[in-house]
């Protein structure tokens, strides 16, 4: 079972002066249990790509299949959409109910489940994203802090128990601690729910930390697709399209410039820590 995109093309405002090609011949298979990081510049097509995954945008040509369901078919689309939980950028901007609990329940309620199950799932979602149900359930979502709002919005999608959790820049605009908490929560969610995670991010370091597979987009195309090691072993290609490198890579590069032999596949901070410690003969 998988999300499959086959030769997907998409253009915004086709036929007007503002035509903009967002996706070009994108083919991609995302399997269960993967953690896929998607990186690329603003306007490289990342957000358009993830919006295709649950059928909210329909490709101009090509196909999107979710667990065998063709998302171009209006009747079965709903079933496919329920499998793919899509968390947009700044998801706290979509909160609207009087209480946090009601807002988290919005998606589940639209699935037409019985009340007891809705309640059970909402409580579970609260605890999965680390919000105290007793403390927050009856509050207005507009009273929450930025990080809490973000977690509440995430809970609304989690409660729908998606098989594929798709997140568009889930850490954007948060302070450093907030970023860390959300990324850790996402990694924990993957464990707890056993779902696949597809995460769009600008932060090389975050993508490197969490992903089992990385996709690099440029100008509406997929230009690289592989394990983190495979992607970062080809650093030249990333620099070619002007994407930054993770901090560890920059350091490894600086060490190499100064004649220290750092293997090409050593660039995670922990690996560098061990490597430098050995070089300097530091005790464990």
């Amino acid at each position: 079972m998988a999300i499959e995109l086959m030769d997907v093309n998409y253009t915004y405002m086709e036929g007007t002066a503002f035509e903009h090609e967002a996706l070009r011949d994108v083919s991609l298979t995302i399997r269960e249990n993967e953690f896929v990081g998607i990186i690329g510049h603003t306007g490289s097509g990342k957000s358009t790509l993830v919006t295709h995954m649950n059928g909210i945008l329909q490709p101009l040509s090509g196909k999107v299949i979710v667990d065998g369901i063709d998302m171009s078919d209006k009747r079965s689309r709903k079933e496919g959409r329920a499998k793919v939980g899509l968390v947009f950028q700044y998801p706290e901007h979509q909160l609207f109910e009087e209480t946090v609990a009601k807002d988290v329940a919005f998606g589940v309620r639209n699935m037409g489940l019985p009340e007891e199950e809705i309640d059970e799932r909402v409580r579970e979602a609260f605890s999965l994203v680390g919000l105290d149900y007793e403390k927050f359930a009856e509050k207005s979502p507009f009273e929450l802090s930025g990080g809490e709002k973000r977690r509440a919005a995430l809970a609304g999608i989690i409660a729908m128990r998606p098989k594929y959790l798709v997140l568009d820049e889930p850490m954007a605009g948060l302070d450093p601690l907030g970023r860390k908490v959300i990324l850790d929560t996402i990694m924990k969610l993957k464990q707890a729910l056993g779902c696949a995670v597809i995460m769009v991010s600008h932060s090389m370091d975050d993508v490197l930390k969490a992903s089992t597979r990385i996709i690099v987009m440029n100008k509406g195309r997929i230009v690289m697709d592989g394990t983190p090691k495979e992607i970062f072993m080809n650093a030249e290609k990333l620099l070619e399209i002007n994407l930054g490198l993770p901090q560890g890579m920059i350091l490894a590069d600086e060490l190499r410039k100064r004649g220290i032999e750092v293997k090409k596949d050593v660039f995670m901070m922990d690996e560098l820590f061990e490597f430098i410690s050995r070089q300097l003969g530091l005790a464990n």
Binding site: Q247, I250, L251, D253, E254, L255, K257, R258, G259, I260, I276, Q279, L280
Partner: peptide, 10 residues
């Protein structure tokens, strides 16, 4: 910075 640290280690 990475540059300064690398310089120090080297």
């Amino acid at each position: 910075t990475a540059e300064e640290l690398a310089e120090h280690i080297a």
